[in-house]
Structures are given as structure tokens and as C-alpha cells.
């Protein structure tokens, strides 16, 4: 309960920050949209049309009030409600993110586990080095190289993420594989590193020693006593990674011309379409906060130390 209230407080602060960023920093919204050479009267009129000449507090109240009731405002650029654009974009991004997650979570956990089991040996060093390199190379760089190799030279995958209209599920997934790989690369290093650290902690723990000295076979020690304690904390780590994933989406969607939340924000930013930009960014914040909240709850549910508090 307390956790939920904190999340709400965080989100409220976030909305203030986003609003401040979008409305206060540029000063004059109409001027920002029309450019420095536009006629002063045109700027004034635009501001009046958009409602950006009203007091800031009032603007904020209108915006956040609308947001809570599901009215996300009207796009400056399209002169149409924001909501439908946002939903479509979120759905598209979710597909891409899902493909990436389905690839990276098993790979990351497996990689980290193998690295820990072969600690300080060749397998560990290679996995750790690869993970480190993959994590830090920006998505657009690995994306470009992947496009060059698999899209242009080998022609194994399409270089656009968007499947033709009415394509089946498999075709859609096929189009999403290449764009997902840069995201997978960036996340793999994190997840593998966390999984490795968790595994090593569990392997070195006294309870593992107890299990070995009971006479359990090594595979059973790992399976029954180590894995559970090791990989549980990784859950919350995976949840925090969604924020990096979304950051990556912006770039990947631009690179692979995909209509998701990333390209929506990007387009809105380029067109100075502030309502669209605010809604897009706040929705990301909500998604992230909700994900970490769920992960925390899930963690609490799975970890008996939290589930069954102290004594009695």
C-alpha cells in the first residue's frame, strides 16, 4: 500500500516535470512552433488557439485533469485527439519489445548462469567480455551494422520493421527480429551480469555448503538450492531494464521506420507538438513505474523472507 502511494507521488512529480519541460522551458509555445521570423500577431493568435496564453497552473490543471479522465488532449500538428495515435504507437512498440524480451530474458539468464558456473574460466571471461561490449554499443550502431550484414549483404531479413498491411503473425514477427536484436544486445549484458552476480552469491552461500555436505549431487544442489535464490533478485532487475528498452525503442523505430512510441515522441519533438510529446512521455513513465511496481510485488510474492515477515 505504501509502495503504491509512493509510486503515485513519483508519477505526479513526473507529470509536473514533464509539463515544466514542455511548457515552461520553451517560454513561448507559439513562437517555438512558428519559428523566430514569424509575425508576432500570428504567434499570439496561435497561442490563443492552443490555450497556451492562459496561466500555467490552469494549463497544468486542464492537462492533468484530462489525462486522468482519459482525455489526452489534441495534437497541435494533426489537430486531432492524441489518444488514438498513442494507443496504436504503444501497441506497436509493445510487439517489438515483447519480441526483444522473449529473446533476451532466457539468453541473459542462461548466459549469466553459465558464466557463474564456470567462474573465472574461459567461458565466463568470453561471456562477460561480450556482454560488456554488447551493452555499451549504441543501438543505432549495432542496428546499422546488422542492417548492412543481414539486410543488405545477406538479405536474410527485411530492413523495415513494418510488415505489409494484413500480414500474418509470423510475417510480423519476421519483420521484428532484426530490429529487436540491437535491443537484445544492449539488455543481454545487464541481465547476464545480474544473473551471474546472483548465482555467484548463492553458490558461495553457507546454505549451498550445507546442501553439498548433506551429500546432494551437484546438479541437484544447483537446481534445488541455488537457482531459486540466485535468480529471484534478477526479476526486479529485468523490470528496471524496461526503461533502457524504451530508450532504445526511440532510436530503433527511427532506424527501422516503425510506427511505435519512440517514433511518435520523435516526430512530436520535431514538430513541437507538445500535447503529443507530453502524453507520449508520461505514458512511458507510467509504464515504467507500473512495471517496477509489479516486479516488486512479484518479488515479494516469491521471496518468503518478505512474504512472511518477521517472527510469528
Amino acid at each position: 500500500m505504501k509502495r503504491l502511494l509512493l509510486s503515485v507521488a513519483t508519477l505526479w512529480l513526473l507529470s509536473v516535470l514533464i509539463f515544466a519541460g514542455a511548457r515552461m522551458l520553451p517560454g513561448n509555445v507559439g513562437r517555438a512552433m512558428l519559428g523566430p521570423f514569424a509575425d508576432a500577431r500570428a504567434v499570439e493568435q496561435l497561442n490563443h488557439e492552443l490555450g497556451t496564453d492562459r496561466p500555467l497552473l490552469e494549463q497544468y490543471a486542464t492537462w492533468i485533469g484530462g489525462f486522468v479522465t482519459g482525455d489526452l488532449g489534441e495534437s497541435y500538428a494533426y489537430r486531432a485527439p492524441v489518444a488514438p495515435f498513442l494507443w496504436t504507437a504503444l501497441l506497436n512498440s509493445a510487439k517489438l519489445a515483447l519480441v526483444a524480451f522473449l529473446m533476451v530474458v532466457p539468453l541473459g539468464l542462461l548466459g549469466g548462469t553459465i558464466a557463474a558456473l564456470y567462474r573465472d574460466r574461459a567461458a565466463d571471461r568470453i561471456l562477460s567480455a561480450l556482454g560488456l561490449a554488447a551493452t555499451i554499443v549504441p543501438e543505432f550502431v549495432s542496428g546499422i551494422i546488422l542492417i548492412l550484414i543481414f539486410g543488405v549483404w545477406l538479405r536474410w531479413f527485411p530492413i523495415s520493421a513494418t510488415a505489409p498491411e494484413g500480414a500474418g503473425l509470423l510475417t510480423q514477427v519476421y519483420h521484428l527480429i532484426l530490429p529487436a536484436i540491437p535491443l537484445v544486445l544492449v539488455l543481454f549484458g545487464y541481465i547476464a551480469r545480474m544473473a551471474r552476480a546472483g548465482m555467484i552469491e548463492a553458490l558461495d552461500a553457507d546454505y549451498t555448503r550445507t546442501a553439498v555436505l548433506k551429500g546432494l549431487s551437484y546438479p541437484r544442489v544447483i537446481w534445488r538450492h541455488v537457482l531459486r535464490n540466485a535468480l529471484l533478485p534478477t526479476i526486479s532487475v529485468i523490470a528496471t531494464q524496461t526503461v533502457y528498452l524504451i530508450g532504445g525503442l526511440v532510436v530503433i523505430e527511427i532506424l527501422f521506420q516503425y510506427q511505435g512510441i519512440g517514433s511518435l515522441i520523435y516526430t512530436a519533438a520535431n514538430k513541437k507538438d507538445f500535447p503529443m510529446l507530453q502524453a507520449g512521455i508520461l505514458s512511458i513513465g507510467i509504464l515504467f513505474t507500473a512495471t517496477t511496481l509489479i516486479a516488486d510485488l512479484l518479488y515479494a510474492l516469491l521471496d518468503p523472507r518478505i512474504r512472511h515477515g518477521g517472527d510469528e
Binding site: 509512493l6 507521488a9 513519483t10 508519477l11 512529480l13 513526473l14 516535470l17 514533464i18 519541460g21 514542455a22 515552461m24 522551458l25 520553451p26 517555438a32 526503461v243 533502457y244 524504451i246 530508450g247 532504445g248 526511440v250 532510436v251 515522441i265 520523435y266 519533438a269 513541437k272 510529446l277 512521455i281 512511458i284 513513465g285 515504467f288 513505474t289
Partner: peptide, 23 residues
């Protein structure tokens, strides 16, 4: 901490995008 949480709820690229759009 709440403020920090709020900012960290957004990817760096998006925060930067917002600020750079405005500035």
C-alpha cells in the same frame, strides 16, 4: 528520492529529447 525516481522513470534519451526540444 521521489524526484530522483521520477526522473529515472524515463530513459535518458527521452529526458534529453524533451529538454532539447524545449531549449
Amino acid at each position: 528520492s521521489r524526484l530522483v525516481d521520477a526522473i529515472l522513470a524515463l530513459p535518458t534519451v527521452v529526458v534529453a529529447l524533451l529538454a532539447l526540444t524545449a531549449l
